[in-house]
């Protein structure tokens, strides 16, 4: 679907305070989840109760923003009731859409809440027009969050072929694997994004000092070693340092995060309907800063002005950033 409208800025919120900050900073939509394993950021102290969600919806609607509820893990066999209730509760709270990945849940939502707007989560990894059409035709999906494995040209080609909106990530943490199809975390820890809503969970992280080096471990495996005076990166499995043959280093991905701000013109040109910022686990002030900056960037684009470059550099934890798969050379 070609895009003639102003692209929607979709912002994360892990707490009611972050939700209000995102709305105040100019988010068009805010996405959030319930405090349980039904969403892919199932971290302690994060996310919303049903009551908090209903309050958040009221706040957002008053401010002219929408609320999207991520129910994007894969229900455990025998326990789908918890996920079904999450969908029911999102409807009851007045949410504008749910973001789903599991086929069974999509079928449930279509059947029980036919008027509820359904978005396809990045966790479903629908990576081409045929797969997207399948979800549109079978489950009435209105928007697909594209997996972070596609180039800008591929995204443009998809938009020429499909009858639904597309949403792409533009900033924040970067999965190097096709999301929803990765069990690296559970291989090392028993806890996975698909089943538990966590990746490389802090509960399984250990640090120890050894010969002047800080060793970061995930479960029984060393993910990185750095000299003691250097800041130790969090041991996210796919950003770790390993050896493979003669190679020693970041086999999968450097500890970078995504910043596609400068690609906003091309992505608009490619027909993308919504830009998504990752980071429901982030603080309220981080959310405020990132949303404010992206609001400016999108508004500049729509006014035909140049995108301010590098304004978000300081928000990437001192990390280097990458445009990821959007540029073909990344592969």
């Amino acid at each position: 679907m070609q895009n003639s409208r102003r692209p929607e800025l979709v912002c994360p919120a892990g707490t009611p305070a972050a939700l209000r900050a995102a709305v105040d900073a100019g988010a068009d939509s805010v996405y959030c989840g319930f405090c349980d394993e039904t969403n892919a950021r199932n971290f302690p102290g994060l996310n919303f109760t049903s009551v908090e969600l209903a309050e958040g919806v009221r706040y957002a609607h008053t401010g002219g923003a929408r609320i999207l509820v991520a129910i994007n893990t894969f229900p455990r066999a025998g326990a789908a009731e918890l996920w079904h209730r999450a969908i029911d509760n999102a409807v009851r709270a007045g949410a504008d859409a749910v973001i789903l990945a599991d086929i069974g849940l999509l079928a449930y939502a279509r059947e029980r809440h036919p008027d509820l707007r359904r978005h396809l989560s990045v966790q479903a990894a629908a990576s081409n027009a045929d797969a997207i059409r399948f979800y549109v035709e079978e489950f009435g999906v209105r928007r697909v969050v594209l997996p972070r494995v596609l180039t800008v040209n591929e995204i443009a080609a998809i938009n020429r072929e499909v009858a639904c909106e597309t949403e792409v990530f533009v900033f924040g943490g970067l999965c190097v694997m096709a999301e929803g199809r990765c069990s690296l975390s559970s291989y090392a820890t028993g806890k996975s994004p698909n089943m538990n809503g966590v990746c490389s969970p802090a509960s399984h992280v250990h640090y120890r000092e050894e010969k002047g080096e800080l060793v970061s471990r995930l479960g029984d495996f060393t993910i990185d070693r750095v000299p003691r005076h250097q800041p130790a990166p969090y041991p996210t499995l796919c950003k770790g340092c390993f050896s493979a043959g003669d190679y020693r280093g970041h086999v999968f991905e450097d500890p970078v995060s995504l910043d596609a701000a400068t690609l906003i013109p091309q992505l608009v040109q490619a027909g993308v309907s919504a830009f998504k910022i990752e980071g429901r686990q982030r603080s309220r002030s981080y959310i405020r800063d990132v949303v404010t900056n992206f609001r400016r960037a999108v508004d500049a684009q729509m006014a035909g002005e140049p995108i301010p470059a590098g304004v978000l550099q300081h928000l990437s934890e001192g990390q280097t950033t990458t445009a990821g798969a959007y540029r073909k050379t990344w592969r």
């Binding site: 997996p147 190097v176 990765c182 796919c238 043959g245 086999v251 991905e253 798969a325």
Partner: peptide, 13 residues
């Protein structure tokens, strides 16, 4: 365990 748009065999070489 995982599939990616990126080729790791190519990357490490």
């Amino acid at each position: 365990l995982a599939i990616s748009g990126r080729c790791y065999h190519a990357r490490v070489h």
